[in-house]
């Protein structure tokens, strides 16, 4: 028993030496800050007026001039990284999220255990890397039971928008946008600079990045719902609709 204790203490001591060594290496004035969580909050707004977006609310698309009520709006965000003041990056391991407008899900992306420090940029991928689309059975948010995976044409549905629209055939619209190969990849990596204020990560101190996203953007360049209300496979339309949406996601402010 004593011997075991000794072993544990010894290994703890070794581990400690190593971690403290590391700290010494990247010594700067933020050394005293503690590791903490960073939250990215996706605020969904509608159209140029940026009225509040929510599910089960009748909205009018300003360009299509058609009424629509969403009952599903969710999408994958992955591979989130934060850029520190010194230019180094902190990449969250296993970084996959579903941003969901439904209150049963979450519009928050939480990056746990970010090293204490000041950060100037965030980078994320809308959609996800192709590897995950070809690696077989996944778990967690990547579990096909989440309803975001095509059974007959393997690959993730990277963005799902469904609802009702009086002008659409059958009165409903269904857009499942995805695709990870070739010219129709529904995935794009974006990075956003926070401007003059840095994001401070220090233990329990709040560290929030507020993003604004606009689902109306999906139809910038797409046809009216009366013409096209269903698209459920990887193709050029999936690419253009998703790109229009992703491109309009913008950084709004930091909450420290």
């Amino acid at each position: 028993m004593k011997f075991l204790n000794f072993l544990i203490i010894l290994s703890a001591a070794i581990a400690l030496t190593f971690t403290s060594c590391k700290k010494d290496d990247d010594h700067d004035d933020t050394d005293h800050l503690h590791e903490g969580n960073v939250t990215i909050d996706f605020d969904h707004v509608w159209g140029a007026t940026e009225e509040a977006f929510s599910l089960n609310k009748e909205l009018t698309h300003p360009m299509l001039n058609e009424k629509m009520t969403f009952n599903i709006f969710k999408y994958y965000v992955s591979n989130v990284r934060l850029k520190a003041k010194d230019g180094s990056w902190y990449a969250m391991p296993e970084s996959y999220f579903i941003v969901d407008a439904d209150p049963s899900g979450s519009n928050l992306v939480t990056i746990p255990n970010v090293p204490g420090g000041e950060y100037t940029d965030v980078e994320m991928t809308f959609g996800m890397d192709s590897t995950r689309n070809t690696s077989g059975a996944q778990s967690g948010v990547l579990d096909p039971a989440k309803g975001m995976f095509w059974s007959w044409n393997s690959g993730y549905i990277m963005l799902k928008a469904e609802g009702t629209a009086p002008t659409a055939a059958n009165g409903t619209f269904t857009f499942h946008l995805g695709g990870f190969k070739g010219e129709n990849k529904v995935q794009t990596t974006k990075s956003y600079n926070f401007g003059t204020t840095a994001l401070v990560v220090d233990g329990d101190r709040e560290a929030e990045i507020h993003m604004v996203a606009n689902p109306a953007r999906l139809w910038h360049g797409a046809e009216k719902l009366s013409v096209k209300s269903v698209n459920t496979m990887p193709n050029a339309l999936a690419k253009s609709m998703s790109s229009n949406y992703y491109d309009a996601v913008r950084f709004d402010h930091i909450h420290n």
Binding site: N133, T134, S135, A137, P144, S151, W152, N153, S154
Partner: peptide, 16 residues
């Protein structure tokens, strides 16, 4: 050839 991995193969018949 639509399914790219044996592990996700059963997903198709179960949900078809």
């Amino acid at each position: 050839g639509g399914i790219n991995h044996i592990e996700v193969m059963p997903f198709a018949p179960i949900t078809n």
